[in-house]
Amino acid sequence: MTPAIAALIVAAGRGLRAGAEASKQYRQLGGAPVLCRTLAPFLADDRIGTVLVVIGAGDGVRYDEAIGHLPEATRGQLTRPIDGGETRQDSVRAGLEALAATGFDGCVLVHDAARPFVSPALIERALAASTEHVAAIPALAVTDTVKRVDAAGRIEETLPREQLVFVQTPQAFAFQPLLAAHRDAHAAAAGGFTDDSAIMEWAGHWVATFAGDAMNLKLTYPGDFELAEQRLARPLVTRTGTGYDVHAFSDGDHVWLGGVRIPHSRGVTAHSDGDVALHALTDAVLGALADGDIGSHFPPSDPQWRGASSDRFLAFAADRVRQRGGRIDHLDLTVICEGPKVGPHREAIRARIAEIAGLRLDQVGAKATTSERLGFTGRGEGLAALATATIRLPEPE
């Protein structure tokens, strides 16, 4: 049985070194709060069942405003945040205790909110390491010469850099050992730990490393934000994808189109809710990303998607665009059927698609047509949808 996986995002710090009045996790970066950029890849990974954010006391309003930039379906995947403590160590312990109170037991990824460029590939490596080790952390080789100095700044020693690494997050841990280590450190009044692997070392656990990511920048100083903005400002290239879906009619009294429940004399045969519009749009976005299709991410053979609401699929695809530093410019949909009549529901469908994908209403087009009584749609055997997605992605470095 696959163990449960949780992501604990530490966002309780004030980030004074970043040089702004607002805590760095709530500052805008490329038009979106840092926290939203950090959360997106964790929320998009369907293996991570729980995403919990630890926030600063009194930051509830700012948190709610920040996650308001995420699509509605994505926001619904978040566990309500909890307040942290005076130190990062206190905040992580508070998050672990909150998970323990729900009966959680499995693997936990602990990640700093100030690292908004965490990639799906790095999360993948963290999850892989968690299956083999009680504690594992991402590490980068030190390429500069490192020296130890005294209080006056004089060189005392040149350190062998082949034995040194830079450490990042997300760090992966077996939940119960990490919780026990935090509790023991708190009981012993042992503090000053700058990351959770140090607490595990203190508790006597062996900590493994896996390959980090040089692009996984931590925002600490004002210059870091300047570099991050420059990175996001790379020239964008336009990509277009198309999607198509079809479902046969069956017994029922409604169909789902574009996230809107429409009364009808028939239902559809489908593994999920059978929303051909959202399925076609999801494939269009994934096609523009060259990132597989709806079946590769949400296979019909997996029972967890039986009867699933299709808004989750489109929200997932939209989040994949944001993870890559891109944006969706336009979604266009055509529904093909003899019935039900789509026209009376057109604006509701456009509004719902915009809400799911985090777009303005003018970025969504929706149309319907018949097939002049020809083919399976013309015979009233089912309905189909065609979709086009236009996105922009940063040029590869």
Rank of each mutant, 00 (worst) to 15 (best):
A389M: 00
A128Y: 11
F193W: 09
L39V: 12
Q171L: 08
R312D: 04
G252H: 07
D245L: 04
E72Q: 10
A277W: 00
T169W: 07
P116F: 09
R261M: 04
Q163G: 08
F173R: 14
A187F: 05
W256N: 07
G326I: 01
R115L: 10
E21C: 07
L52F: 10
R239D: 05
T209R: 15
A100R: 15
L78A: 11
R346C: 06
A284C: 04
T282I: 03
A22W: 06
T240V: 15
H279E: 14
D293I: 09
S91A: 15
T145F: 07
A172Q: 09
M215P: 06
R346D: 01
E201G: 06
D251Q: 11
D319F: 07
A174L: 12
P41K: 06
L122G: 01
R239M: 08
D45Y: 11
Q28K: 11
W202N: 05
F117C: 03
P33M: 04
P170Y: 06
A151L: 13
E157W: 12
A135Y: 07
G326Y: 00
A44P: 03
I5D: 00
G212Y: 02
A113L: 14
A57Q: 10
R161E: 11
I328N: 00
G76N: 09
D275S: 02
L219F: 06
G103L: 10
V364A: 01
L96T: 13
T238Q: 14
G85T: 12
R154C: 13
A228W: 04
D329H: 08
G49S: 11
L236N: 03
G191D: 15
Q304K: 14
L227G: 11
T390F: 02
A129T: 11
E65G: 06
I391S: 01
L227Y: 07
V207T: 13
L314I: 02
F225S: 07
V255I: 01
F298I: 02
I294N: 05
D150F: 01
G274S: 00
A308E: 13
